[in-house]
Amino acid sequence: MASYLLSGPTVEYRVEQPYAAIPIQAALEEWNKTTALVPELFQWLENKNVLPAGAPFYRYWCLEVGKSEFDLEVGVPLERMVAGDERVIASSIPEGSYVCAIHRGHPDMLADSVHEVEKWAEKEGLSFDKRFEGDIEIWNGRFEQYLTDPETEPDLTKWEIELSFLILRDEIA
């Protein structure tokens, strides 16, 4: 397996970060539904005169073994909390220690980087803040932040995506 990790994995402590997001359920085959939400979210922020505090991200909530559909949010970090509405939610990225790494390459190859991060964390004796309900994996903090602006870099093989997975709180002093 080729490595697509540009940097990391490392452990980083992060403070709570407000964000606005649009929740969605989507399968990989219909991923264009998720990417279409990014401009909608930026337009919503512009209409509210709220500036983003970083690049857009996906927050994964539920992953189910054998199921290709994901429960996630398409979000943008903010400097301060805002009120959501019937379409856009306001929430926050949890404070805590995260295993972080930068994937460089086509988003279709992201699973390889995720696997490397998971192997590294296991080797380091770290567990992610998640639980299982049957075959469903429920995460407290699993993020992919898209650091590359597709308008300035249309070549997907040059994209950089930060992976950050929240570590169980009792594992890091």
Rank of each mutant, 00 (worst) to 15 (best):
M1D: 05
M1V: 11
M1G: 13
A2K: 15
S3C: 10
S3M: 13
T10A: 15
T10R: 14
T10D: 15
T10Q: 15
T10E: 15
V11W: 11
Y13C: 10
R14D: 07
E16N: 13
P18R: 02
A21V: 12
I22D: 05
A27M: 13
N32L: 13
N32M: 12
K33I: 09
K33T: 07
K33F: 07
T34E: 10
A36L: 14
V38Y: 03
P39G: 06
P39N: 00
P39L: 00
F42K: 02
Q43D: 13
W44H: 01
W44L: 01
L45Y: 08
E46Y: 11
E46H: 14
K48N: 11
V50N: 00
L51G: 12
P52G: 00
A53S: 03
G54Y: 12
G54H: 07
P56V: 07
Y58N: 12
R59S: 06
R59N: 03
R59H: 10
V65Y: 01
K67H: 11
S68L: 11
D71A: 12
D71N: 04
L72Y: 06
L72D: 02
L72N: 02
E73W: 02
V76G: 00
P77Y: 09
L78G: 04
L78K: 02
R80E: 12
R80W: 01
V82G: 04
V82F: 03
A83M: 04
G84V: 01
G84Q: 05
E86N: 12
E86M: 05
I89D: 00
A90S: 15
A90T: 08
S91P: 02
S92W: 08
S92E: 05
I93W: 07
P94Y: 03
E95V: 14
A101P: 05
L110K: 03
V114K: 02
V117F: 07
V117E: 03
K119C: 09
A121N: 06
E122N: 06
E122Q: 07
K123M: 04
K123T: 12
S127I: 02
K130N: 01
R131W: 05
R131G: 08
F132Y: 11
G134A: 06
W139T: 04
G141W: 03
Q145C: 13
Y146H: 13
L147H: 03
D149I: 11
D149G: 06
P150H: 01
P150N: 02
E151F: 12
T152N: 04
D155Q: 10
L156P: 08
L156I: 07
L156M: 15
L156Q: 14
T157L: 03
T157G: 03
K158N: 14
E160V: 11
I161H: 03
I161E: 01
S164W: 01
I167C: 05
D170C: 01
I172C: 01
A173L: 09
